Amino acid sequence: NNDALSPAIRRLLAEHNLDASAIKGTGVGGRLTREDVEKWLAKA
């Protein structure tokens, strides 16, 4: 759900042209964290 994304995470996803639904969030309530996105980028 994009409503649950912080502005910083939205920007990070946009910079790398990523789809938030492709990344499993580990934050509160399954929210994406910066670490989630960075780990996903490291694997890609």
Rank of each mutant, 00 (worst) to 15 (best):
A22D: 13
H16W: 04
N1A: 12
W40G: 09
A44N: 13
H16I: 03
G30V: 02
W40S: 15
N1H: 12
R10N: 06
K43M: 15
S6L: 07
L41N: 01
A14Y: 09
L13M: 07
G25R: 04
A8G: 10
V28S: 10
A14F: 09
L32A: 04
A4D: 14
N1Q: 13
A42I: 08
A44I: 15
L5I: 13
I9F: 06
K43T: 13
S6N: 09
W40M: 15
D3F: 00
R31Q: 14
A8L: 08
V28H: 09
E38V: 09
L18A: 08
D36H: 00
S21W: 05
W40Q: 15
K24W: 05
R11W: 08
A4T: 14
R34M: 15
N17Q: 09
A4K: 12
A14D: 12
V37L: 10
T33N: 03
L32N: 00
N1D: 14
G29S: 07
N2M: 13
D36A: 01
S21E: 10
A20P: 14
A44E: 14
V37D: 00
G30A: 04
A20E: 10
I23W: 01
E35Y: 08
T26L: 05
P7V: 12
T33Q: 04
L41G: 00
I23V: 07
E35V: 07
K43L: 14
D36S: 00
S21K: 11
A22P: 05
D3A: 09
A22K: 14
I9M: 09
G25K: 03
N17Y: 08
N1G: 13
D36Y: 01
L5D: 06
K24E: 12
A4M: 14
A20N: 04
G27F: 02
A20R: 06
R11I: 09
V28I: 12
L41S: 01
T26F: 03
N17P: 03
T26I: 04
N1S: 14
E15K: 10
A4V: 14
R10E: 10
P7T: 10
S6W: 09
N1Y: 01
A44T: 12
V28L: 12
G30I: 02
T33P: 00
E35I: 07
P7E: 15
N1P: 12
K39E: 15
T26P: 02
N2Y: 04
V28E: 14
R10V: 14
L18P: 02
N1M: 11
D3S: 10
G30T: 03
A8W: 05
I23Y: 00
G30K: 03
H16M: 07
V37H: 00
A14Q: 12
G25T: 03
R34P: 11
D36L: 01
G27Y: 01
T33Y: 00
N17L: 08
A42H: 10
N2G: 13
L32Y: 03
W40C: 06
T26E: 03
K43D: 14
R11A: 12
I23T: 02
K39A: 13
L18I: 15
A14P: 00
E15I: 11
I23D: 00
R11H: 13
K39S: 12
A20F: 09
G27Q: 02
R11F: 06
T33E: 03
N1W: 01
S6T: 13
I23C: 03
L18D: 02
H16T: 01
G30Q: 04
A8M: 08
A20L: 11
T33K: 04
N2W: 03
N2D: 14
G29R: 06
G29M: 07
R34E: 13
A44G: 08
D3I: 09
H16D: 00
D3E: 12
D19W: 03
R31M: 13
K39M: 11
E35G: 08
T26G: 03
A4N: 14
L18Q: 05
I9Y: 05
S6G: 09
R34F: 15
L32D: 00
G27N: 02
L5R: 03
A44Q: 13
R10I: 15
L13Q: 00
D36E: 03
K24P: 13
H16N: 05
N17F: 10
P7S: 11
A20G: 09
L32P: 05
A4S: 14
R11E: 11
G27W: 01
K24H: 11
N2S: 13
D19H: 08
H16Q: 02
L41K: 01
A20I: 13
L18N: 03
N2R: 12
R34G: 06
L41F: 08
A14V: 09
K39I: 08
L12G: 01
V28W: 05
